[in-house]
Write a protein that binds this DNA or RNA. Structure first.
Lengths: 232, 232
DNA sequence: CGATGGTTTGAGATATATCAAACCTCGTGG
DNA sequence: CCACGAGGTTTGATATATCTCAAACCATCG
């Protein structure tokens, strides 16, 4: 019995392309690893030595300039794939935002296994194409949207991704509530803004009764259509 | 004898994964198409009906907001693949910047063919992973770089991509010369700036003897290390 | 209870956008 | 051949969104 048998993302990750026997083989080359918030799995610019599936938690993909400016270029959730297979170097670091569990493979082992399992590569291709679409949509935000639109778009995306967040009907209208896996600084690094600008936009949305902020990390979207309108 | 036999990108495009017989089959489902500057092959948000290989020319991938702001999210060159296989809708439009030749497939035909040829899917995966890396690097530019750094980065990338541009040694130092496939407005749409800001950065770089501008579309990089330093 | 790290708020500086006009370049037609 | 017009580009003056710097604030933890 392998760890895969009890894996909660077994049917959503790329592993879903494999049958029982194939999974058994794959499980011999993978191993689980636990990460605490702030802990990195991969560093920007290093040789691509490992790839992984996210089992639990949220991680950021980020790059930066020499003088210390940072940009978060992606966020991954359970069942997402991380790392750069079939490639020389990783162009961005991977760091846990929350406590996280990942299923790690040496890149060489994974590459070899994948090349012999077209169904796995197909899943990976689908996932990569989807990620590319999402990333390009984010470019519109970074290149052309105002601070207000960026923050609103961010909250809309969060509410979609963290669907585990409660979604309640309070006296006749729909509310969404969730806990952000990001600090204010990290939100700024996702949106290409400063922490102060992000903070001001949060309080503005709160004053306009579009959202509510019970605590630093918690968000309630009070006026969902209103927020979508703000997202531009 | 199929069109593929004389295709100039035969060995660089994803088709390189196929043998003679497979190519023969593929060529029966593809057809060539010529595009003039400004002509679109795919429109943002429409159903994904076709995919293609670029044979000749340069094309832009772009999205926009409802109120008319535009962002170019990618630029493709000969041997690049365009369109969204295995997927519902295209999240960005594809428009020719120069005269262009493409090899077009119906998405359904291509999907079916690809699924039966893992080597082709593997090539496509590699290409997609590379494109994702490049796109993420561009996010750093859009999120964190100044106008000066953006324009300089753009020119560096152009000089790498348009290596067909002459590269001469003029009295002891290296110069690069090429013709831009973009108007100033399109450069602005790539960089997330306005046309005026792009123009001002061009003249600044010219005044500082880092580049020279013999005509609107032509660029000579006089001081290559200087430009790279400006790119940040 | 005080220290600490993250967050919010405020006042001022600045890079880039906006609006407007002048300027080329190139093709067209007189 | 030259004048004209049109599109794209450059330059200028001003506005403004966002950044920067600085201080106050607030939870959390020892």
């Amino acid at each position: 019995m392998s760890a895969c048998d009890t894996c909660v993302i077994r049917n959503r990750a790329i592993c879903a392309a494999l049958n029982k026997d194939e999974i058994a083989v794959l499980s011999t080359i993978g191993r689980r690893r636990v990460l605490v918030p702030g802990e990195s799995l991969i560093w920007e610019g290093e040789d691509s030595v490992l790839v992984a599936n996210v089992i639990e938690g949220v991680l950021k993909l980020s790059t930066g300039t020499e003088d210390g400016r940072e940009q978060i270029v992606g966020v991954v959730y359970p069942s997402d794939f991380i790392g750069r297979p079939f490639g020389a170097t990783t162009s961005h670091g991977v760091t846990a935002l929350t406590d996280a569990k990942v299923c790690v493979f040496s890149r060489r082992d994974f590459d070899a296994f994948a090349r012999e399992h077209p169904a796995l590569e197909h899943k990976l291709l689908q996932r990569t194409l989807g990620e590319l679409d999402r990333t390009r949509r984010w470019m519109l935000l970074l290149g052309r949207k105002s601070a207000g639109e960026r923050v609103a778009s961010f909250l809309v995306e969060m509410s979609e991704r963290l669907a585990n967040g409660r979604c309640d009907t309070i006296d006749g209208h729909l509310e969404m509530r969730f806990t952000l896996p990001f600090s204010r600084q990290q939100i700024a690094d996702v949106l290409g803004l400063t922490i102060e600008t992000v903070s001001r936009q949060f309080t503005r949305l709160k004053n306009e009764r579009i959202i509510d902020l019970p605590s630093r990390r918690e968000v309630i979207i009070v006026d969902i259509p209103g927020l979508e309108a703000e997202a531009g």
